[in-house]
Design a protein around this nucleic acid. Structure first.
Lengths: 138, 138
DNA sequence: CTAGAACTTGGAGTGCGCTCCAAGTCAAAC
DNA sequence: GTTTGACTTGGAGCGCACTCCAAGTTCTAG
């Protein structure tokens, strides 16, 4: 019980390669996110190499959730800026997430609807292929 | 009862601008789709201007459903090529749609899961903001 | 018949979200 | 202390799905 999950307090930090492996992002993408302000400047080793803490991992995982739900980098930047600005922005952040959440519901509904339409098309093709309807033997 | 819905047999065809309005695609995008082979070469007026028939409209609407469910243009090209190739490809088309459909299910599930996680984050922010838990009256 | 709006083509340009590269520095193992 | 692999930066390049543009042609209304 050493290296999976919650980053044991002992190991403390991750290199960019370890972070990449854990998050599924490339090292390049992690640097890009940091440069873009999605991730705030991360800790560094004596020799200036990135060292990610557990809190960084949590944040990146949250960012990935926003991304997975279709949020653009520009919008994630906005949220990250609010977060960086401190607790005075909690209400703004809540509003932001609520709005994103409701857009998400809409998108899921639309997807379901399109999935249903696809099912009909699939049925159609299945009928085209099936031997003969109502004429089992001949 | 003249211009909405199913393209009355009388009017017969639509100009590219009318098609754009009906589908929500831009005229440029319609030409791009045609050039890309997503739409087969559409009918032309005497003077070489595009005239879309009802069947073209149906097909574009189907293509839009594929797009809305996340299919890339390259994949839609593949499907369009199968369609153009005739009834011998019906089984292939069915397999194609089934695969797309099952990927779609996965994506919807993932989206739901992320939505749930977002709800937790929202709850978290709500608790941060709410006056005082468990101390309704002071 | 004519003016002006809508259409045609080919090709260049755009925005997004990374990815790749070069040239140099740092870290870990021996 | 040296090698080898991982890391650093800045910036160029890429794939996707369009969008925009220019120069010319066609359509429609009056």
């Amino acid at each position: 019980m050493n290296s999976e999950d919650a980053l044991s307090q002992e190991e403390e930090t991750l290199t960019i390669a370890q972070m990449a492996e854990r998050t599924g992002l490339s090292a390049d993408a992690l640097r890009y996110y940091e440069k873009a302000g999605l991730i705030e400047p991360v800790g560094r080793s004596a020799g200036n190499q990135r060292r990610y803490a557990a809190t960084d991992l949590d944040w990146v995982e949250f960012v990935l959730r926003l991304r997975a739900t279709g949020m653009s980098i520009a919008d994630m930047q906005r949220f990250a800026r609010l977060r960086t600005a401190g607790q005075t922005t909690v209400a703004d952040r809540l509003a932001f997430l609520r709005e994103h959440r409701s857009g998400l519901d809409e998108r899921i509904r639309a997807l379901q609807q399109n999935a249903d339409a696809l099912d009909k098309k699939i049925d159609h093709y299945e009928r085209l292929l099936s031997p003969q309807p109502g004429t089992e033997r001949t």
